[in-house]
């Protein structure tokens, strides 16, 4: 069993203006997993993230990192922030330097690394985020997408074990979103834990290993994506919509074109493979209703064969 890297236990937090952001929230994130945190605006996602690296301190409850209770002394916090990196939503508030190179070097230099090592880390982070050709450009001439990638390189260069992205794909075009998600997969393949918050249910469904749904400062539901997104009560209660893949597959099951116990494909690619291997699927769509009993049986049997590949 994989161990938990970050745990929150009954965490309560209230902002000075009286907003109760977290109300006894508990969750545990497994090491090396890809975790998506969903929830409507104001559900407490960003506040929770700031607890994970010790910027905010719970008024009640506990945060644990790698099994140890977080202490709020200087040495512990520095070590925590070295291991838990956050990429903030608006790159303009995160980027403080006018030089891309200097910007990325800030984090690793704070870790007390040697100059050569910092240079190496900066270069690696720039290669990973594909911004090497931007290093001599000033940050204020970059586009939003470029700034976003610089802000990711900022944190990547520190080599944290856990990377947290606060709504990373908000305001990005579809192409860039795709690139960034691929980058997250590559980061995850290196054994790092990747946590992101999003409103994009389709992306969360296809990408995440595990999902937490937040509502009003507590965890309203959690589980693997296929379980969370088939829980209609939970989705309704937390103002989420059903991913199109789940919706389409449920509809196919309702019509009997898919075996009721067939697992729902996780990605578009898996789904297409599913229907492609089903050779005459499209041809029989228009068969008269009287024959439907037979065709349904045929379809179900052929789809059961497909099941293995889904």
């Amino acid at each position: 069993m994989a161990k938990y890297i970050i745990e929150a236990e009954e965490v309560q937090f209230e902002y000075p203006d009286g907003t109760k952001a977290l109300k006894g929230l508990s969750l545990a994130i497994k090491e090396g997993q890809k975790v998506a945190i969903l929830g409507s605006n104001g559900a407490g996602k960003s506040t929770l993230f700031l607890h994970f690296n010790g910027i905010l301190r719970p008024q009640r409850g506990k945060i644990r990192f790698a099994g140890k209770d977080v202490r709020y002394d200087h040495a512990f916090l520095m070590n925590l922030r070295k291991n838990v990196g956050i990429v903030f939503q608006d790159p303009d508030t995160q980027l403080f330097s006018a030089s891309v190179f200097q910007e990325i070097s800030f984090g690793p230099l704070n870790l007390g690394l040697s100059e050569d090592l910092v240079r190496q880390r900066v270069n690696e982070a720039m290669v990973a985020t594909e911004i090497t050709d931007l290093q001599h450009k000033p940050t204020h001439f970059l586009s939003y997408g470029q700034k976003k990638r610089v802000s990711i390189a900022d944190v990547l260069a520190m080599g944290p074990a856990v990377l947290i992205f606060d709504e990373p794909t908000a305001c990005l075009d579809p192409m860039l979103t795709c690139h960034i998600m691929e980058l997250f997969d590559r980061i995850s393949q290196k054994g790092k834990t990747v946590i992101l918050s999003t409103h994009d249910v389709d992306m969360a469904y296809s990408w995440a290993d595990y999902i937490f749904v937040l509502k009003d400062g507590t965890v309203a539901g959690e589980g693997p994506p296929e379980k969370v997104f088939q829980d209609e009560g939970l989705l309704r209660q937390t103002d989420l919509t059903t991913p199109w893949l789940v919706e389409v597959c449920c509809e196919l099951k309702n019509r009997g074109w898919l075996a009721p116990d067939a697992p729902i494909p996780r990605t578009k690619k898996e789904f297409f493979e599913c229907i492609q291997s089903e050779g005459d699927f499209s041809g029989r769509r228009y068969l008269p209703a009287t024959n439907s009993g037979e065709t349904l049986r045929q379809r179900s049997s052929s789809l059961k064969i497909v099941k293995g590949s889904c």
Binding site: Q94, S97, Q102, L111
Partner: peptide
């Protein structure tokens, strides 16, 4: 204020150390 938070997240301790090209 957000800038301070983002800097603190990257272990800022009062000095903006950066590497020169």
């Amino acid at each position: 204020q957000i800038l301070y938070t983002t800097l603190s997240s990257r272990c800022y301790t009062g000095e903006l150390k950066v590497l020169e090209t």
